[in-house]
């Protein structure tokens, strides 16, 4: 039997990431994930959506797939933007940002990595797919 899957298609409009986290909350509850894990998933999803909305320069929609495995929630955030080179993404440090001209933003990928169990990025000039997972028990 196919794994249960929920698909969202979000237009690139301000605060549409909140639609995604509403769905994530329902899915997390269905999978009996703890409140802390559900909150971490929501935060990571917000950041993945914002990256897709703002940094991909995607003109179309952003697609989000929730795949419910027995002991793991898999979330894919897919955009059709211009992609990015992950080797050029620096790990942000607040020490480098305070009292300098360095922009204070740029925390999204770091937060996703810290909050989820696994994260993978596939990026080409045709778009980016972020695949992140959270286990029920870890």
């Amino acid at each position: 039997m196919d794994k249960p899957k929920i698909e969202l298609k979000l237009p690139i409009i301000a605060n549409m990431e909140l639609v995604a986290i509403n769905t994530a909350e329902v899915v997390a509850k269905h999978m009996d994930l703890s409140e802390d894990k559900a909150a971490e998933i929501s935060m990571a999803l917000i950041e993945a959506c914002i990256n897709a909305f703002e940094h991909s320069q995607a003109q179309n929609n952003v697609f989000i797939h929730f795949i419910l495995e027995e002991d793991t929630l898999v979330i894919k955030v897919i955009d059709q933007g211009i992609g990015f080179d992950k080797s050029k993404v620096q790990i942000p440090k607040i020490e480098n940002k305070l009292g300098t001209d360095e922009r204070k933003r740029g925390w999204g990928l770091q937060l996703i990595k810290e909050l989820m169990d696994t994260v993978e990025f596939e990026s080409t000039k045709e778009g980016t797919t972020v695949t992140m997972t959270k286990k029920k028990e870890s």
Partner: peptide, 19 residues
């Protein structure tokens, strides 16, 4: 109950100003 990193990064700007 919900934040994003852009909103929080503005708090870093406030910390910088307060320093």
């Amino acid at each position: 109950k919900v934040v994003n990193s852009i909103g929080v990064s503005i708090l870093i700007e406030i910390i910088e100003k307060l320093q």
